[in-house]
Amino acid sequence: MIAPALILFTLFLVYPVIYSLGFSFTKFQGFGSPEFIGLQNYISLGQDPFFWRALQNTVIILIVSIVLLVPGSFALALLLRRKVPGGGALRALVFGPAIIAPILVGLIWVFILDPKIGLLNRLLGFVGVAPVQWIGGDTLTPYAVALVFIWGSIGFAMTIFYAGRQVLPEDVMEASELDGATGFQQLRYVTIPMMRETFAIVTILMITSVFKIFELVYMLTGGGPVHRSETLVSYMYFTTFTNQKYGLGMALAVIITVLGAVVSVAYLALSRERKTA
């Protein structure tokens, strides 16, 4: 019963990764024929300041997003589970941003964050605050990208928490209430521990999604100025398709895949340790 999934997955996901891994050891411009150069692409990346900048930006986005998004969406799921009038509509509205294609999300936020034509600076202008370079400057862009990412994902994460809460057996919850547990105690000692897997699901999904952020940056700044706001994938896109260094781009893609997997596994290992401790 596992075979169909395993076959399709291996064929269309694992095989391509191995295929691209092969290319990462070559010099290949996309149109000629690939030439084996060993680890040269990985070495060049290590010496490329733009790569390190992209990594730094991705880490900033990762930290900001995880710290705000996981507790935030969990709290929101619990809030919306209570009998709030119109709760269903609220849930649908919060989920709204998660439905919009990332490329459109980026476009929408250009109209909010652009230092000259954006909504935010216009509003700040009304109260006399000088324009802030939310995007396109030297420093703020990754934080702005994190904000937009959170906006686009909160409904997504909230829905998973919501579903996770729904499958908890009601009898356990009721028993704890009858035992006189306060709302907070119930949350701390019953709900959160029982939803450990859900937390793992959301966190891993968010980690791997952050490592794949591309369209947001592409629309907001195009990675600029001079690659200062690239994320790993946007820089990989630039390297592979704009700069046509296919081999180098695949080396970068391999690094992204490994990083995403390692961070996710590290999280799993850490959370398991805490469970046994």
Partner: peptide
């Protein structure tokens, strides 16, 4: 191991897949 094997797929950025999938 099988579970981790499949879950590792989450970390794969789509751009790595385009070319090989086209050939498949």
């Amino acid at each position: 191991s099988l579970r981790f094997y499949i879950l590792a797929g989450l970390a794969v950025p789509v751009y790595i897949l385009l070319f090989p999938v086209y050939r498949l």
